[in-house]
Design a binder for these strands. Sequence first.
DNA 1: GTCAGATTGACATGTATGATGTCAAAATAT
DNA 2: ATATTTTGACATCATACATGTCAATCTGAC
Lengths: 154, 154
Amino acid sequence: MTNVMMKHDDLYKIIWMSRPLMQAAETLVEQGLQGTGLTVRARAVLEILLRHGSLSVPDIAVHLEIKRQYVQVMVNETLAEGLTRKQDNPRHRASPLIALTGKGEQLIARVTERELEIVAALGAELNPDEVRTTLQVTSALLQKMKTAVKEERE
Amino acid sequence: MTNVMMKHDDLYKIIWMSRPLMQAAETLVEQGLQGTGLTVRARAVLEILLRHGSLSVPDIAVHLEIKRQYVQVMVNETLAEGLTRKQDNPRHRASPLIALTGKGEQLIARVTERELEIVAALGAELNPDEVRTTLQVTSALLQKMKTAVKEERE
DNA sequence: GTCAGATTGACATGTATGATGTCAAAATAT
DNA sequence: ATATTTTGACATCATACATGTCAATCTGAC
């Protein structure tokens, strides 16, 4: 078998591994959320706000790549629990910025810290250079797949 | 920043990339299925049968890691369309083996061949050694995550 | 400034992919 | 032989979104 054929086979396996990988990851996240009262979707909102600062609902939807209508539901949950609050939006008076409250910020900071610890444990035996290579390859692959999807749609 | 911290950060990114990766992959698969009349779930059943030969419904469920009740629905679809047929199961008379028909085998062979072509195009610029490394790292990561999930449950 | 078109929150409804529960028939284990 | 398990079949539920619509508000071109 040629090297090139093996590469395609490897790529095929990598692609089909993305689903079990994601499922395992999300199950781990769920377990990490036990006791925090957070849902996975609330966690997603808080993390975006932690990383990017205050954003409007449509902005969050762009980051999460899901529809604003669904983000609205998620955000309303976090507002109800006092994890976020509305701020005036200078760019659009009817669309407030959603900001983390102190409570929300502490919570999401604790959660992501804990997740990083778990990741550290998972990666204990992995070679840093190989991990770096993996990140580069999967990033490139994702880019190419997104482009391919767009092209087919035209 | 130390090498080790960078590794954890890379790993974290890889893990969170699994969802967009999977979504892009599944969108591509859907596009490849256009015109075949196949649904994504019917395709999954046919592919398992192509790779592992005739299997009972519960066997397929083990491979797909979903509940047998749902697999039953998927299999019934493929039976109705003449893509699979029931065979006597020597190990369990009430649970027939599901086998590909000629029609089903041709169809799934064509579909997977086409998918491999798309993968080949995607991977054109990727280094085979790096792809190999990526497969090894993601496989190891998946293993570790599954183990971690099990351990937390105990 | 005004008016057409876009953006937004809110709400209702639809859909895909499963999980879960239950039952009766059949098979298997003891 | 009988207790236990497996299986197909069917019904119900849950989650994670997408889609459609409306009224309010905003923006941009004139």
